[in-house]
Design a binder for these strands. Structure first.
Lengths: 216, 216
DNA sequence: TTGATAAACTGACGTCACGTCGATATGATC
DNA sequence: GATCATATCGACGTGACGTCAGTTTATCAA
């Protein structure tokens, strides 16, 4: 509701709370959080080393003590996001039991996660177009979903739960469906309401895989 | 087949063949074609005014006689592509008769068009992340599909051909499905084979809208 | 507390792409 | 062949980049 008032990304980098945290670790964390805050309210294309470090008490060149460049920094953040998104998806990918119920659960969690991190998710996707190395990371992230999805679909096909079609291109397409629906629906303010998005995606996946009669 | 040998984009800008073609028009056309050739074999992020004009006989600054900047130039090219893509899509959007047959026809043409222009389509999408103005053009292009799709779906819902659900978010998602499947499958060499992509997209659309029993 | 060693930080530099401008080239027309 | 409009170019200032030598700050043993 307080979409207007939120000025800080809900995703934060918290250093593992052990005894001795070196100064350099705290500073690195501060920069990462500054980056998250930045993309929460600005498009990625406006994030220069200058504009990023302006919101810290450090100089521009201090940035290079911690990261090779902006995209190397985004790489770290992508890995954090990837973990959280995978964790939101494993109901259907790994679960046992009614697959439609598992798929519905997955979309509950996944939609919520992508809604919370929408602008950051979009920043990651944008960053992938401007740097060759980081593009590979992004592609690999998407491909991990492809592989997991294909495995699940082929298993269900072996059980006769899903019709016998080539799982690879369908999974590929369904994953792009998710990724870019979330990115464009939740990637910039004001974000779309999550509920209709979740319903639409669940409808498409369930209709395609298990048949429209299972759409709730 | 000769994917390796093709070094020139199939999309060309041909000046309307009237009598007097001014020199400036011919030069502008030459630059546009150089841009198409460039993105056929290089990612958009490598297209600077320098690298683009290097393949012409003109100097870098001559570029600015014809376009405000790279993105204004892409805007022109997007409009050309948009026309061709819309033309490929109107079977289902405007046609009368069996909607599943129309949808299959649409995917035949649309897949072929997007396959032929894959690297350029991808360049347009990439360009949208790096320029605010051009991003608006890209969003508007996608939105035009959303509006047309919603109209068609709601009409079919009124006839009982499609179940009664909120057409807007489903159309939004299905259009991102198409756009980013095409972009990522056909956007860089080597391109995916078009046939499995067409089948997958048609399956998803038909299953979602008309029911899996109509998938060919 | 102090002083030495390592870590953290900074300002300044060279590079590259940008978009602009005044000056020069070229080509059509009389 | 002279003239005027159009086309082209070289050079400039700006801003972001990544690096480096040098300075400041933190850490810790004595």
């Amino acid at each position: 509701m307080s979409e207007k008032k939120r000025s800080t990304s809900p995703l934060r980098v918290s250093p593992q709370a052990t005894l001795a945290i070196s100064k350099s670790e705290r500073t690195r964390t501060a920069i990462l959080n500054a980056a998250l805050d930045f993309v929460w309210s600005h498009p990625f294309r406006e994030m220069t080393v200058n504009s990023l470090m302006a919101s810290t008490h450090l100089s521009r060149s201090a940035f290079y003590q911690y990261f090779d460049d902006i995209h190397k920094m985004m790489e770290m953040l992508l890995h954090m996001l990837a973990e959280e998104i995978f964790a939101s998806s494993n109901h259907w990918l790994d679960g046992v039991g009614d697959p439609v119920a598992l798929l519905n659960e997955t979309f509950e969690g996944l939609t919520q996660t992508c809604y919370r991190h929408g602008p950051f998710l979009r920043a990651v996707s944008d960053a992938a177009t401007t740097d060759e190395r980081f593009e590979k990371d992004w592609v690999q992230f998407l491909r991990a979903f492809d592989d997991a999805g294909i495995t699940r679909i082929e298993a269900d096909q072996a059980q006769g739960l899903i019709a016998a079609f080539d799982a690879r291109p369908v999974t590929f397409s369904l994953n792009r469906l998710n990724a870019y629906t979330f990115i464009q629906a939740f990637g910039q303010h004001p974000r779309s309401r999550p509920e209709p998005v979740r319903e639409a995606l669940a409808r498409i996946w369930i209709s395609t895989l298990y048949g429209a009669e299972w759409v709730e």
